[in-house]
Nucleic acid binder design. Sequence first.
DNA 1: AATTAGCACTCCATTCTAGTGAGTGCTAAC
DNA 2: GTTAGCACTCACTAGAATGGAGTGCTAATT
Lengths: 354, 354
Amino acid sequence: MADTELDERKVKILNAIIKNYLETGEPVGSRTISKYTDLNLSSATIRNEMSDLEDLGYIVQPHTSAGRIPSDKGYRFYVNNLIAEKDKEVADMQEWMIEKTEKMESLLKNVAKTLANNTQYATLVSAPSVVSNRLKFVQLSAVDEHQVLSVVVMDGNIVKNKIITVDKPLDNETMLKLNMLLNTNLNGLTVDEINLALITKLKEQAGIHDEIIAQVLDTVAETITEGDDLQVYTSGATNIFKYPELADSKKASELLTTFEEKQSLMELLNDSTDGNENTGIQVYIGDESPISTMKDCSIVTATYELGDGVKGTIGIVGPKRMDYENVVDNIKSLKGQLDKLLKQEADRKNDNRN
Amino acid sequence: MADTELDERKVKILNAIIKNYLETGEPVGSRTISKYTDLNLSSATIRNEMSDLEDLGYIVQPHTSAGRIPSDKGYRFYVNNLIAEKDKEVADMQEWMIEKTEKMESLLKNVAKTLANNTQYATLVSAPSVVSNRLKFVQLSAVDEHQVLSVVVMDGNIVKNKIITVDKPLDNETMLKLNMLLNTNLNGLTVDEINLALITKLKEQAGIHDEIIAQVLDTVAETITEGDDLQVYTSGATNIFKYPELADSKKASELLTTFEEKQSLMELLNDSTDGNENTGIQVYIGDESPISTMKDCSIVTATYELGDGVKGTIGIVGPKRMDYENVVDNIKSLKGQLDKLLKQEADRKNDNRN
DNA sequence: AATTAGCACTCCATTCTAGTGAGTGCTAAC
DNA sequence: GTTAGCACTCACTAGAATGGAGTGCTAATT
């Protein structure tokens, strides 16, 4: 894994520089390293090595006669080694918060909150994309003469509801019939699988009530897709004030606005879903970030699975000098727990079916 | 309305000072006023008057040899006159956003967003307190063998749902029976009215299923009250960065954290519900605010009614030198529209009942 | 050939020093 | 009661002086 362009000593020195900078946030000088490491080298030697490292692009000087700070490339090197070599020691995490799974929404809110508390960075969690998720249950009920409540339950107990206004009251019998029709035909399907043929078939079977079926189906589709863009929960956004390099008015404003609007966060999370390979962990450093307002940040994301390719994402946003080890451990652990938890539920569901 | 301690000229000068300060945010000096007003007085005269106004506590000097800025008392005087005398010219507001009332939640989110855009301050909107609101419809449905979905619809089409886990599957007949039982007994009641006697009665009628009824009732209560503390939507919190006096790291951090946590915002909104008299508009200036992190802000709130004492609140948070006129106009107009809208719905409901 | 000591140099950050200007308060004249 | 005039205060700014951390280079050392 160690690049050939760096000999062992350079690697040690680079790591020392980065570790130190992660702690202090100040440029680190040759004398500091000379003492900090067990290499027993004088500051002059370190200076020569640092000069090489700078030529190679791993570190930079904010100005002549200042110490060095890691470049994006330096961070990248550090993180690659970290993730490749560490794959143990996943910290134990509180499980209390997963007790009540009934509500997906509050579960995810809790995940975001806990993670923000543990890491002191800003966190975001996206709900599993509903589009390729399966319908579990549909129900229409007459609330009053002109209003019909439609409730849709998806796998993972994601519940959506909407009130439809109808011109004429529906009698009980029709209601029952429609419910039967909807449930027998739709249950177990994904949104993608509800195609025109099926819709036509449903309408035929509904007879004179085809108008209503159409409206209901529209609503079902709408119900499922509507807030989908906005299904992202954030927490600890104001933690960024803890890091001076992000806390100045302009940057903080941009960052927090990004968090408030949530729109562009989705892009980030979607991007993560594709990108990462085997580990499921994705790290963006500085300019690597897909969101321009986060050029001065690092982002760590993990994708959790709900089965059948239905995925959601957890993310952490902090300064470039974030505590990558701790963050990766935390997020890995959480991802594991979510995977496990949702797996359990999927299994339980299958048991029921058999 | 004009206080006896201020003669007409002092009032004019005070107003001039405040108006000018609202625009510029800079301390305003005697020479500025001397030109700005049509009083044709020299700066020296203004100085004398300003000295008096300072003695009376309406304005303060940030330091000797600076101009004056309004004190909280000064703002208060200004606002009182403003609200008392202005009761016309309520700006016309876009109505498009109220088209789709089906979902209370998105309606309120929209209200917050629109208001934030119009005023460029931070806004918050609380959902009508569900506690004294009436149940409109309750429904239990079996999602699978161990999970029962309970949906509760309140007046104003506030829909809440929750999934209950049960040990034994419920057969169709029981389900129907329970639904009948719940709806005939609970519809039209407020949460407060569901007392022990009623619960006992329900349990008796449920026979061997009293356990389930208990659990369901628990859930209904929980469903209704649970997220109730958190039912507050905010928008434009990051607008505070537009006002230098709030944008420094420390203050901004505190303020935004308050907005993020939402907990204490509830106190503010609850406080407003009681406080205001006939107009329905409440203005907190600086220290008057019930939330300590907003000591440097002004807050304008309005209470909207959903009928039967069920109330929600709209609020705007900005710097003390906020554009009170515009804010009050906006919030008044919005309150009016919400009142009207919800009134309509209440009427429609009553029509249906007759 | 690699390492180190030593020294001159650079540049940021801090402190101090006027200098400037907006604004006041007071007094005396109108 | 109003105004002109003047001395005074105080924040803000620019510039100069100082100190210190850190570098790069060269020559000596191992």
